[in-house]
Structures are given as C-alpha cells and as structure tokens.
Design a protein around this nucleic acid. Structure first.
Lengths: 191, 191
DNA sequence: GTCTATACGAGGATAGAC
DNA sequence: GTCTATCCTCGTATAGAC
C-alpha cells in the first residue's frame, strides 16, 4: 500500500491527533491501523515527542504549500479568501480539526520542541493572510479595520474557533459552513 | 480552608481541565492539590465521567449567572458586549481557557453525558449573545449581517479561537486583548 | 525493519479497615 | 470520609532475536 512506513505512521498519527488530541493518542492506535507492532514504531521515531514534532513540521510545510498555491492561482482576492477558509472546512466531515488548533489546546502538556513548531505555524499563517488582506485593500476590494494584521488575527481566530464549536454539532462540516461563509461574504463583499 | 471537600475537588479539577484538557488530567493531580488520597475521590465522585459531568454542569450554571448579571447591569449594550468578552479574557493569565472550548477539542473521547453538557453550554451562550445583539440592533447601536444569530455564532467562534491562539503567545492575556477588543470596537461602534 | 518479551510507571477503580 | 492495599489495564520505551 504505502512505499514508506515512516510516512504511513505520520499519516495515521496526524489523523488521530487531529481527532483526539495529543494526550489521547498512543502507539497502540498507530500499531492497529498501520499493521505494525508498537515496538517497531520506535525504530522510525525514537520517542513520541520526536514523532509529533515531525508531524507538525510536515503539516506546516503542507499548509504553506497549499497557501502558496492559492496565492498563485489566477482568481480574485475574494475567491482566495474563500479558498483559504475551505482549507479549514475540509477534513471536518471526519471531525478533523486543524492539527495546530488541537495542539494549541494541549499546549500545557507539549514538549518545547513541539510548542515551537505550533507557534511557527500560527505566525506563518498570520503572515500569509495579512498579505492577502493587504492585497485586497490595495485593490479596494475591501477595508480592514483597525488594521490588516488585526483583521488577519481575528479571521484566523474565527476559523479555528468555528472548527472547535462545530465539533459539538451533529454535522460539523455544515455547522462550520453556516457560520463562516455568510460572515465572510458580509465582511468582504464582491466575493 | 474549604468547608466542602466535593466542591474543593471540583474547583481543582476545573482548573486542571481548563489548562490541560480532559485526557491529560488524572486523579493523581487532584490528590496532590487537594491533599487527599486518590481512592478518597471516588467517595465523592464514583467515576471520572461523573466528576467531569458535574464539572461542566456547574460551569454552565456559573456562566449563565454571570451573563445574567451582565444583562441586568445598568450599562449600554456596547459595554455589556465588552463585559462578555471579559469573561473569556479572565483566567487567561493562568493559561486557563473556557472549559467547554477545551472539552470541544477533546470531544471525540468524551462520554456522552459530558458531550450533552458541552453542547448545552454553547447553545445557552449563543442564545444569550443573540439576545444582546438583537437589543443593540433595535436600539440602532449597530447592525448585524447577515443576521444576529450568525453574528453571535461568529463572535463566539472568534472569542474561543482567540483564547486558543493566545496560548502559544508569551503572555496569552495580552495576545487575546490585542486581537479581540480592537475588532469589537471596529465592528460595534460607540462602545 | 520488524518481531517477541519485558520493564516500569501511571491510569481508573474497588475492598475493607479505621 | 479517609485511609492502605491491591487489581488490572494501558502508557512509553528498551533489549535482543530474526
């Protein structure tokens, strides 16, 4: 199935953490789904800390690539904003929220190396969104008050929060969509 | 110190869950801080599920009371909105976020009884905020688009999300304030 | 690379003395 | 009500055979 066991472990681990959090995931969970013994996982990742650190690092790269693809697509700023929101909607049908939102909740029990990666993820996301909002301001598609940075932080907070709240709904994907998209359209017209 | 051991256990447990989440808190943590043996906790709460269920139930009542106090205070709608946001800011200096935000992240591993309480919390909060926003609309203090319900959901999402994001900052309380209050003032003038 | 076997602590929970 | 003692399961991690 997979050509690379280490990557298979990472893929499975990521899904579990995004669903159950850092503390509630264990080597046994991975063992079951990958079809490998618990002990064998240690060959690829010496410790749980290492595994999760690698997880976030990879997640960060993946998200950065997706954001860049959005920014380079030949669509309007408004459409790019929608596509950014789509990133947070996707996965919700499996009750998977942003890996770093989950880890932010677990922040108090994270090893320092993982904390640093989580912090970096939010900074990178904020920087990217700030640039997009700025572009829309210059094109006079919308206005950001009191500043693009504030607006970016607020938007990310809303997206992450909406994911969280959606979990307690029956269909979390629909709950997310019903909160996020109408507000986006109201705030950023012409989308 | 405390006249009631059960309440003391609840108080300690609440602080731990708000900081570390459902999965990462244990009877040993409570034992240490309350000064009582692990086994003795079971006298007051037969199981962990029971303990946490009671925890959320009480939290829900406390928050409902605080919201009511805000609604009945002789201040403007805008000031009441600020006071509502203050509820989510307070506690952040100890890195404590909303109990139900934490449990929403842990939703996948919660027993059903706790899930029901969490769901009820968000519904009650949403209903209260919707009423406040409606009052402000009627007094022409602000406008809500596309609807008061949507605006309420979006605001709650932003508040919960801002708490989450703030955790990865050095001073989470300040990070929260810098995101939330400027946006509130921009969106709801005259505050 | 993956296995079996095992160490060792922590988890929630119960029984029974005081 | 709280204690000690104990149970059993699950957690991460290691050693060494294959």
């Amino acid at each position: 199935m997979e050509r690379n066991t280490a990557q298979h472990i990472l893929d499975v681990a990521r899904d579990i953490v995004r669903n159950r959090g850092y503390s509630a995931f264990s080597y046994a969970d991975i063992s079951d789904r990958v079809g490998i013994r618990k002990a064998s996982i240690h060959y690829h990742f010496p410790s749980k800390d290492e595994l999760v650190r690698t997880l976030v690092q990879q997640y960060r790269e993946t998200m950065a690539r997706r954001c860049d693809r959005i920014a380079q697509s030949p669509t309007s700023c408004e459409q790019q904003l929608i596509q950014f929101a789509d990133l947070y909607r996707d996965g919700l049908h499996q009750n998977q929220i942003c890996l770093c939102a989950m880890l932010a909740a677990d922040f108090a029990v994270l090893p320092q190396s993982v904390r640093d990666e989580v912090r970096a993820f939010f900074q990178q996301t904020e920087a990217w969104l700030t640039a997009l909002l700025q572009k829309g301001c210059e094109a006079q598609n919308w206005q950001c008050q009191p500043s693009v940075e504030q607006e970016a932080k607020g938007l990310i907070a809303m997206l992450q929060g909406a994911q969280l709240l959606a979990r307690s709904a029956e269909d979390s994907r629909i709950a997310f969509e019903q909160v996020v998209y109408p507000l986006l359209l109201a705030k950023f017209p012409k989308a």
